[in-house]
C-alpha cells in the first residue's frame, strides 16, 4: 500500500517535500489536504477534561469549568467507577461520517492507517509521554517508548459481528500505536448495535454487562494503567461498561482514546 494517493478520495496527495520524507522510499498512507481539511480536529486545550469533547462546539451554558454537562451527569450517576478520562482526535461531522462509513460499514480496513500519526500523538499526550527523545534523556527518564506501566485494550466486537465485518476497527486503530495490544475483553453476542439506539436506550443500564474479562489476562492488568481504545465516543456508555468489566482485575486507572467524539 503506497501512500501517494489519498485513502479517501484516491486523488494524488501532492504532499510537500520534506527533509523527513526526502529519502524515504514510500510515503505513509494518509488523507490528502483537501479531505483532511474537512475534518474537525479537537484542540486538546479546549476540550472537556473528562470526555475530551470539543467545548468550542458546545453551548456555553452546558459547560462548568472545563467539564461538560454530560460528564457532570456521569459523575453524579455513580456509574463512573474507575473510568477516568477520554481523549478523542476529531469531532463527528459529515466528512468523518463518510470516513467511518467507508471504514466500518464498507469494510475498507486500510482507512485506519489514515490517522496513524495523529493517533500516536494523541496517545502520547494522553499518557503524558514526552515526544522527544532528547527531553527524556535530559530529565533522566526512560529511554524506551514501551512504557510497561500501560496496558492497551481495544474494545472488542462480538464473535458474530467480527465474522460479519471481518475485522475489529478498534484493533486496527490500536495497531497504529505500534505497541503491544492486550485483548483482555470478550463481548457477548446478541446485543443490539449501539449505532441503532437512541441516547436513552444507550444510557439505560443493561441487565448484564456485554463485556467480560478474559481471566487469563487479569494478572497482566493488575496495578497497571489501562488505556481503552475505540473508534467513537458517543455517550460514553460502552467505554464505561468495558471499564466496569476490567475493574475486578484491579488496574490503577482506566482512561480511553477514541478517534471520534460524536
Amino acid at each position: 500500500m503506497n501512500g501517494d494517493r489519498c485513502l479517501f478520495c484516491r486523488k494524488l496527495r501532492e504532499e510537500p517535500l520534506h527533509f523527513r520524507t526526502l529519502l524515504s522510499p514510500e510515503t505513509p498512507p494518509g488523507l490528502c489536504r483537501s479531505c483532511a481539511g474537512k475534518l474537525a480536529p479537537i484542540d486538546p486545550r479546549r476540550s472537556c477534561e473528562r470526555c475530551g469533547r470539543d467545548l468550542g462546539r458546545l453551548d456555553g451554558r452546558l459547560v462548568h469549568g472545563n467539564i461538560c454537562r454530560d460528564c457532570e451527569r456521569w459523575a453524579g450517576s455513580g456509574r463512573n467507577g474507575l473510568f477516568g478520562k477520554n481523549r478523542s482526535l476529531y469531532s463527528y461531522n459529515e466528512m468523518m461520517k463518510e470516513i467511518i462509513t467507508a471504514f466500518k460499514f464498507r469494510s475498507d480496513a486500510v482507512m485506519a492507517q489514515a490517522f496513524r500519526k495523529e493517533f500516536r500523538t494523541a496517545y502520547r499526550r494522553l499518557i503524558r509521554d514526552d515526544p522527544s527523545l532528547w527531553i527524556r534523556i535530559r530529565k533522566g527518564g526512560r529511554l524506551f517508548r514501551n512504557d510497561p506501566s500501560h496496558v492497551i485494550i481495544p474494545i472488542p466486537l462480538s464473535e458474530e459481528r467480527l465474522q460479519q465485518r471481518g475485522f475489529n476497527q478498534a484493533v486496527l486503530l490500536t495497531e497504529n500505536l505500534g505497541r503491544p495490544i492486550t485483548e483482555a475483553l470478550i463481548r457477548r453476542s446478541g446485543e443490539e448495535k449501539q449505532s441503532k439506539k437512541n441516547r436513552r436506550q444507550r444510557l439505560k443500564i443493561p441487565r448484564n454487562n456485554p463485556f467480560t474479562l478474559d481471566p487469563q489476562t487479569a494478572s497482566s492488568i493488575a496495578g497497571k494503567k489501562v488505556i481503552l481504545v475505540d473508534d467513537i465516543y458517543t455517550t460514553g456508555a460502552t467505554l464505561r461498561l468495558a471499564a466496569a468489566a476490567i475493574e475486578p482485575a484491579a488496574p490503577l486507572s482506566i482512561d480511553s482514546l477514541t478517534l471520534v467524539h460524536g
Binding site: M1, N2, D108, G166, L172
Partner: peptide, 17 residues
C-alpha cells in the same frame, strides 16, 4: 494501489481485499 491488506478474522490470516 487499489488493494488493501488487513488481518482478517474470517480466515485468520492477512487477507487482501
Amino acid at each position: 494501489r487499489e488493494f488493501g491488506y488487513c488481518s482478517c478474522s474470517r480466515c485468520g490470516k492477512t487477507c487482501v481485499y
